[in-house]
């Protein structure tokens, strides 16, 4: 119960961070908060959070950011599927190796969203759309530590299946 609440609160906080007002010059430096938090919970509890959670969160995110509906749903569920498949390997990585993977995954997610934007009439805008992937990767090691300590505090320990 307490654990579900923690997941809910962290995801909501991430959504909040993804729409909170920032100076217009720094907009490209906003990390993909929601996806980072989603990655963490999928890695920590892959038996409970997966593609369906990703799609649900994606739909809400579509609404929050006035995107074409399905944009975040598609992008989130695809990369979360990759994390789900590779979660055992990803857990073995140290924080910075994980950050490298995060960079690739969020880069893919940004690319999917960029394709959808172009297909729905947005003009191409150079490679800036990949910048948030880099920022997100740099933030990942710290975010992971914070979320892990929160998770341990509410006693949400992973059940290991063999």
């Amino acid at each position: 119960m307490k654990a579900d609440l923690l997941v809910l609160v962290t995801v909501l906080a991430a959504m909040l961070l993804s729409i909170v007002d920032m100076p217009s010059w720094s907009l490209w430096a906003r990390p993909e908060w929601v996806l980072l938090v989603l990655f963490y919970w999928v890695l920590a509890l892959p038996e409970r959070f997966g593609i369906f959670s990703a799609a649900t969160v994606g739909l809400i995110q579509d609404s929050l950011t006035a995107s074409v509906y399905g944009r975040h749903v598609l992008a989130y569920s695809l990369v979360v599927a990759v994390v789900l498949v590779a979660h055992k390997r990803l857990r073995m990585f140290d924080a910075w190796q994980q950050a490298g993977m995060i960079f690739m995954l969020i880069g893919i997610e940004r690319l999917i969203k960029y394709w959808i934007d172009i297909a729905s009439g947005q003009a191409p805008s150079g490679l800036w759309f990949l910048f948030p992937a880099m920022i997100s990767a740099l933030i990942w090691p710290w975010l992971m530590v914070v979320l892990r300590s929160l998770r341990r505090r509410v006693g949400l320990i992973r059940v290991i299946h063999h």
Partner: peptide, 14 residues
Amino acid sequence: MILFSVLLLVLDTT
């Protein structure tokens, strides 16, 4: 899920 989101995309744009 891919089908679902593509459906959403098409529905919303058209």
